[in-house]
Write a protein that binds this DNA or RNA. Sequence first.
DNA 1: TTGTAAGCGTTATCAA
DNA 2: TTGATAACGCTTACAA
Lengths: 341, 341
Amino acid sequence: MARGREPTVKDVAEHAGVSPGVVSRVVNANGSVSERTRERVLASIAELGYRPHSAARELRTRTTNTIGLVLADVANPFFSQLADHIVRHAADAGLGVLLTTTQEDPAMELKSIELLLQKRVGGVIAAPGTENAAAWRHMRETGVELTFVDRFIDRIPGIDVVGMDNEHASHSATTALIERGHRRIALVNGPSATSTGRERIAGHRRALQEHGIAEDPGLVVELAFRPVEAETALSGILALPQPPTALIVGNTAVSASVVTHLRSAGISVPHDLSVVVFHDAEWTALTSPPLTVVRHPLDDLARHAVDMLNTRLNSPERLRRREKRLPSELVIRPSIAPVRD
Amino acid sequence: MARGREPTVKDVAEHAGVSPGVVSRVVNANGSVSERTRERVLASIAELGYRPHSAARELRTRTTNTIGLVLADVANPFFSQLADHIVRHAADAGLGVLLTTTQEDPAMELKSIELLLQKRVGGVIAAPGTENAAAWRHMRETGVELTFVDRFIDRIPGIDVVGMDNEHASHSATTALIERGHRRIALVNGPSATSTGRERIAGHRRALQEHGIAEDPGLVVELAFRPVEAETALSGILALPQPPTALIVGNTAVSASVVTHLRSAGISVPHDLSVVVFHDAEWTALTSPPLTVVRHPLDDLARHAVDMLNTRLNSPERLRRREKRLPSELVIRPSIAPVRD
DNA sequence: TTGTAAGCGTTATCAA
DNA sequence: TTGATAACGCTTACAA
């Protein structure tokens, strides 16, 4: 892990015939330097190829321009698009992004937290799992600014949240199906231990209630955020004596495998089953038929997350907790149709 | 960007009634400490919640356990899956990953290089663009270990490369089509300025030659790695007096938009046009018909990239340049069929 | 406007 | 086995 010796402030100072302090002031456009020496210093910097040493700077100033990003799984299109936007916005704000993934595994999440703590990142954007509330809280108490994105664990003071309005999105999806005459609507959801899971069920229930439809618990399945169990769960639902006529997939991680299974099970969409999927991945319009989706404002989500965090990073005083909800949009495509008699 | 004060070696030392040096030796399982004091120190560490300060450590030891990852675009499924694997393997090796994206923009790539240089990362894994050869070379000369993944610019001494065998993959795809009677095979490719672009064209040509088929330059299109131009380029090809009967998409970034366009243009696959796509994204089996794809060994690619880099990081002497090629696999699905008369 | 010097948290060296 | 001390590269009072 050795690195070749690179020029330091001292080298630059000697080369320019000034003191190290002056070089620092030039580099940071801090304190005062005469125009003449400023130019000399800049010339020396250019000639020597001097580059400030981040670690030394961080050590001295107790600050950092690196933030952490903790996501479950960058292979999931929802998270990967989110990550892409976050990295871009962070770069615009002059922030580097240290990315860790947890694979929805609490132990890996803990390791991520540990790594970011050691790196003394100034702040972290995370879509937290459900098990490490204490660790997240502790991270915040340690002075690390924290913004939860998409999901959150608890309304912890000082931890901002930016997410979608899942309750509303889910309500819209269910309502669209009810309006098409569906009464037996299945929901394949993420775990209720997650905020997104809970909110999506809540919106679904509210829509059913508003139309006087009794809820059938057998039609709601909670799947972990890994695709494995999708098949069996789905088979179970579809084999019910009274199978559903519509299906909402509220768990982004399993959408593709659900669609695969429907296809291999020979289920015709929307004839046998109307389908709505959360997250407008690049392929959802390419299936036959194209899928009705809940489209999330990922770029806005990322922008707000970076902004909120950055505000905290640059604010000396302790700010109050903020929560931002962004609206999703129901994009109707041919995968939903009026129910058959 | 301020951080709360956290315990330091000094605090731990005082608490345990030893000197800072001893604490350091305990933490790093370095030098010698008696079992008795070791336990006392560990207890103090636990009680105070001490965590070594990365920056201080980096400054003193001139090492780092952070690597950089420079990719064009994490929203592209090929890169996002690659990133996911790389982050996982890096974590297994105890390495944090600082992710930057370039959006295929040379200026952004340069900014990424600059950031990683300042952060004094020990090594970088990158899928480089074509314009910054000098900067990459300089980065290497500066002592940063470098591994190019997927693409490479030049065979620069000391920069390892791990990629797919694109020539072979492309040759297989074209051959599969020729064997089905196709003679007019279009290739939508990435820029020839990239190694992957060149290799894929080469394999395509070799297959044509082996079967005595004259190459029609009008059937080969180079598209930048952004989806925008896909439509016009494709319309052009399909409007030719003698349109192709088969199409290979060698540019991962535009696959989805190509398929979208074919659909909206009312082209029936494989009846009107056989289609092969590079990279087996999660949706390629979900279209109608399912797409024949070139499947890349992404996990292996990531594993080798991290391993090669890590070897360099831990090797005191300057190693020779290595190049590793991994085989891709042609997965035949119904999107290709014998040519019609 | 400039230089000097101390110190950020570590670890390595050397002496005890 | 342990402790004292210097140094990594930088910034920032403070003094000149």
